[in-house]
Amino acid sequence: MKYRLLLLIGCLCLGVTFGQEKREWERRIERSEFPDSALELIIPYLDGANKIKFYLERDQDKRSYEVKLKKRRLRYSIEFDQHGVLEDVEVRIREVDIPNESFEAIRSDLGQQFSAYRIRKIQQQYPNINANPQEILKKAFQNLLIPELNYEIIIAGKEAKRYQTYEFLYNAEGGFLNKRIVRPIDKDHVLY
């Protein structure tokens, strides 16, 4: 009996440690919390979609909104800035969906940077570069290969005996645009 009480007290006391540090985070939100202007843009595309989830991401002082959905067996991610302006649309694809020449250029670049690497995720990105957001959404949901699209590739790359997760951005021809380190998705919160 006394052990049960001690354990209870222990669990309750730990609660006071919550929220004492400033942090970057993302969380799932309700549809009602999503910006109205953004919601108006995507409503026509929610028809026939499932696994629709809304997220709020906060990165220091910057805030952005994201909606993820699955439609016609494709996974879409639509991002908006804090004012509800479309940033980009991303569609999850596989290696075979990238044109051969573009993919060869990408592989060549990755081979030069890493001794070993594993592609974890590929997304076809339709950025909103001074274009009509409705036009961008239309092209993305038609899965068109347009010159303005980019390929966003999440890689686990090995350099100097350690693995690090990177996000690479290539243009439609497979030309390198950007590289950044991303926070590891696989956290060790569960011990295996």
């Binding site: 942090r23 985070w25 993302e26 969380r27 997220y55 956290k187 919160h189 569960v190």
Partner: peptide, 20 residues
Amino acid sequence: FSVDLPLQGQNLNQGESYLV
């Protein structure tokens, strides 16, 4: 065989819970 997922978002952040 194990399955785990965060309950409040796409990734597990401090103060959030997960199911395993």
